[in-house]
Structure formats: C-alpha cells, structure tokens
C-alpha cells in the first residue's frame, strides 16, 4: 500500500475533527476502496455508492476505531460489509449463513493443460484481462472478497481476517478455494488459446 510518500494519517487529528486530515484520509484510501468496490459489485454506480457509504460510515464511527488494526484494514472492513450488503440486497434470497465454503469438500481441479508457456502479451491481452475480471465475478461473493483483499489489495492473511471478522483458518481455506476456482476458469480459457495457437502453426 502506498502510505510512505506522505506523512501517516494522524488519528488524533481525525478524532479532533480536523477536516483537512479527513480529506487527506479520503484521498489516500479512496482509490483502493473504489477498486475493491468495483471488483466486488461489478458496476460503477454501485461501486460509487459503496465508496461513499464507506467514508460516511468511517466519518460517523471514527471514535469507535481503537487503532488495533491499520486504518486501511478498518476501512476495508467497512467497504467489504457495504459491498456484501449491497450484493445481498440484489439477491435477497441468499442469507449470511448460506453454504459456508470451508464446510464443503474441496473441489478437485478439472483442467490439466499447461498453458504457462503462452507469452505474457497473450495472457494479458485486452481479452485476457477481461477474462481475468470476469472470472473474479464468477466467484461466490464469500470467496471473492477474500481473494480481492489478499491477492489484489495485498493484505496479509492476518489483515484479511481482521477486515472480514473471520478466523485465519477460514481466510486461508476461502483463499485456496478462490484461487483454485480461478485457475480452473482461466485454464479453460487459456487452453483454448493454446489450441488455436497450435493449429495456426500447423
């Protein structure tokens, strides 16, 4: 996280109601929160709602922040909750306790083509990048949020567990499931690219 180029945010100033410091907090963290929100909910307008609600909540509850985690982890926690609430409003039939991923047997890999040899410009072509994003959206939201915090936002396992109020074991299990699922989804796509490439060489 890029917190080193500017002086650290002063919690004391924030608590004292320093508006300039709050504006600085918003500028430092809003791009990160917006990225998380966008990848969680997949829609710009909804992501903006999540972003605004996150900082409104942060502003209201600043005095409850005890400093036991990083400010960024606390903000991610609020944002993750906001995003999950929004997704559940979209599909009210799912409940918070529906299918805890760590209780289901681990799905075994189904794709065994080695596509690692594809050149990076092919793997990360515009179409490839679109497929990477689309695959994230295909993850169940309970796995998606763990993957985004850990592998996109770069939080540690401990920070991810603090942000989501989950045990570290649950975070690790969900992360593994998310990564394996993404590998399967991408393998299906890249294997196809590999076949097309091979055929064009024949």
């Amino acid at each position: 996280m890029n917190e080193t180029s500017t002086p650290p945010i002063s919690l004391e100033a924030l608590r004292a109601g320093d508006r300039q410091e709050f504006a600085r907090l918003v500028d430092v963290y809003s791009p990160l929160i917006y990225r998380l929100a966008l990848k969680m909910v997949g829609d710009e307008q909804d992501a903006e709602d999540v972003l605004q609600n996150t900082f409104l909540q942060a502003f209201r509850h600043l005095n409850e922040f005890e400093g036991r985690s990083h400010l960024s982890t606390w903000l991610y926690r609020i944002a993750a909750n906001e995003a999950l609430m929004l997704l559940r409003k979209r599909r009210p039939e799912t409940s918070l306790t529906d299918s805890l991923p760590e209780e289901e047997p681990l799905e075994e890999p189904a794709e065994f083509t080695d596509w690692c040899c594809l050149p990076e410009e092919e793997l990360l072509s515009a179409e490839g990048r679109a497929r990477l994003d689309e695959s994230i959206r295909l993850l169940p939201e309970t796995l998606r949020v763990v993957f985004l915090l850990r592998d996109i936002e770069g939080l540690s396992i401990q920070e991810t567990s603090q942000a989501l109020g989950l045990s570290e074991t649950a975070v690790k299990t969900r992360l593994l499931r998310a990564r394996l699922k993404l590998r399967d989804l991408l393998s299906a796509y890249y294997s196809e690219r590999l076949t097309i490439k091979d055929e064009s060489h024949d």
């Binding site: 794709e111 080695d114 596509w115 690692c116 793997l123 990360l124 490839g128 990477l132 592998d151 996109i152 990564r179 394996l180 993404l182 590998r183 991408l186 393998s187």
Partner: peptide, 9 residues
C-alpha cells in the same frame, strides 16, 4: 498454472 494465475492477477 495456479502460481501463474496468482501472478497474472
């Protein structure tokens, strides 16, 4: 391929 998947992200 799992390592590559994470690397790409």
């Amino acid at each position: 391929t799992l390592r590559k998947t994470i690397h790409l992200y």
